[in-house]
């Protein structure tokens, strides 16, 4: 675990940067502006064509995977310190990074198979 810490921290900070720059606008458009009708929803065909473009696939993989590792790292320490669960260290680490890995695998599968 200790040897993995630099790598995990790198993923944490890369994911934090991705989320800081890209999440607000995506969340605003998808979660608020489109459902509330403030902007016209992009058409299915347009989005589908966009998502199958190789560069956009790579972009979406980074957009989903790295912030999940950011969450895993930060949430792990939130649980330790915030809820005083120091004795569950190993279990929490496995659950957090494991969830990020599962999400990454799902993103890879969807982006690989979508056509």
């Amino acid at each position: 675990m200790e040897r993995a810490t630099p790598l995990l921290w790198l993923l944490f900070s890369a994911g934090g940067t991705v989320a800081a720059f890209l999440f607000p606008i995506h969340l605003f458009l998808t979660g608020l502006a489109v459902p509330l009708g403030w902007v016209e929803a992009p058409r299915y065909d347009f989005l589908h064509r966009l998502v199958t473009h190789p560069v956009v696939r790579l972009y979406l993989f980074v957009l989903i995977s790295l912030p999940l590792f950011h969450w895993a790292h930060r949430f792990r320490y939130t649980l330790y310190d915030g809820l005083q669960l120091k004795h569950l260290t190993a279990l929490i680490a496995v659950l957090c990074y494991g969830a990020a890995l599962v999400g990454t695998a799902m993103a890879a599968y969807l982006l690989w198979t979508i056509s």
Partner: peptide, 18 residues
């Protein structure tokens, strides 16, 4: 620190959309 939960929430929402 809690913002990370909502970061994960949007990542999952994006998976769902995909």
């Amino acid at each position: 620190e809690v913002t990370s939960v909502f970061v994960a929430f949007f990542a999952v929402l994006s998976l769902w959309q995909l």
